[in-house]
Design a protein around this nucleic acid. Sequence first.
DNA 1: ATGGTCGGATGCCGA
Length: 253
Amino acid sequence: MKIATWNVNSLNVRLPHLLGWLAEAQPDVVALQELKLVDEVFPHAALAEAGYQAVSNGQKTYNGVALLARAPLVLEDVSRDLPGFEDPQKRVIAATVGGLRVVSVYVVNGQAVGSEKYEYKLRFLAALRDYLHGELAAHPQLAVLGDYNIAPTPEDSHDPATWEGNILCSPPERAALQALLDLGLVDAYTQPFLPDGRFTWWDYRAAGFRRNLGLRIDHLLLSTPLSARSWKVDTAPRRLERPSDHAPVLVEL
DNA sequence: ATGGTCGGATGCCGA
């Protein structure tokens, strides 16, 4: 099974890119983030025509997540948000597909270390940990796909001297990510592959993509019954006109 | 037009 995660940064703008990429890459399951649209206008018809069923947890302007499954796979037992964590922001959706429990998560960016948004990020990650603890108990085969807004190691940024200790690369953020792994999840990237490139996000500013000034902040975390046979960033959509600032990441189970 | 980029809304903010 081929699973993927992609922060599309506006599904309205990126729908043509998504449709082209689905036809090209043929993933079985896709987690999307930053839809920036509400469920009422989610493009179900266009995706159905492309062979994909979708469930969404949308929000206007900010956030919004979805899961796609390629027919004949079916998304079932859908749940939205983090139970017990009061939050108007739409950042989590989960479903079961072909015996696999899949979560699409858009972790808070956090803006700057020490800011109010940073505190919210750490609270969100703690609530996510509690939620995944329960998901894992109920569903041994669990894949948590998304934009975590955390670069796990210094090697996951293009310029550790600039990034270390700052937002996306601070020790408390990394500890929160490690706490998710400690539940019994493995970052598919850390399985022994030799990918050409590891970065999944490049800032729009300062020609970040052209200069490969990237970070690895999009992750596919797998429970131990699962194992990845491959891991790769597909940079093709990042090269198109009007791209998302993130590239899709694909893993074969 | 909103500084430097983009998306979305109109609060220039959030990423």
